[in-house]
């Protein structure tokens, strides 16, 4: 048996162990990032679930000024705390639009009445169609979209108080 053949198993083992060590030290990121960052928001036109609130379409995102698009739902528990942080952002001049996933008008109204309403517009996405088109895989998520309608940043999970500076700087960069 040649030397190469005899040492091959050992070399293979070292390679496999190196791979496994890397995985143990870098746990897999279970978040699925949207590949649309840097690309324009897909065209959409959502119905308005609430009477007093304008509907939300992709045209509203190319108005020259960066906006924060927030994917939320009244049935989503982390959204309750997130909405308060969004309210702070709104008070600092951030324009926020909401996409309500799989939700009912009455539930959305009650949710906003209870927790505050940071949204300029709200669109209703009853079968997650826009969510899928955006490459989003959970609720809540937020996208920073620049003034030309290009997605610049995706925030997975609730925007918490500690994330405010990050979101503001992303919005600043998108200007």
């Amino acid at each position: 048996m040649s030397r190469a053949v005899r040492f091959a198993p050992l070399a293979l083992l070292l390679l496999v162990i190196a791979g496994l060590v890397w995985r143990l030290s870098t746990p897999a990121d279970t978040n699925v990032r949207s590949r649309l960052a840097g690309k324009p928001v897909p065209a959409f036109n959502l119905a308005a679930p609430l009477p007093g609130k304008p509907a939300f379409s992709s045209r509203d995102l190319a108005m020259g000024r960066p906006r924060l698009v927030n994917i939320f739902a009244s049935w989503c528990v982390p959204c309750i705390t997130e909405v308060k942080v969004l309210k702070q952002l709104q008070s600092r001049g951030v324009a926020i639009d909401g996409i309500a996933i799989r939700d009912r008008a009455g539930d959305i109204a009650a949710f906003l009445a209870r927790n505050g309403d940071p949204y300029a517009r709200i669109g209703s996405d009853e079968q997650s169609a826009l969510q899928i088109a955006l490459g989003s895989s959970g609720v809540p998520e937020s996208f920073v979209v620049d003034g030309r309608g290009i997605i610049r940043y995706q925030h997975i999970g609730a925007v918490e108080a500690a994330d405010v500076p990050l979101i503001l700087s992303q919005l600043e960069q998108a200007r």
């Binding site: 005899r6 040492f7 050992l10």
Partner: peptide, 9 residues
């Protein structure tokens, strides 16, 4: 595997 590499021959 080391043993194999050593004694295999």
């Amino acid at each position: 595997f080391t043993l194999f590499a050593w004694r295999g021959a």
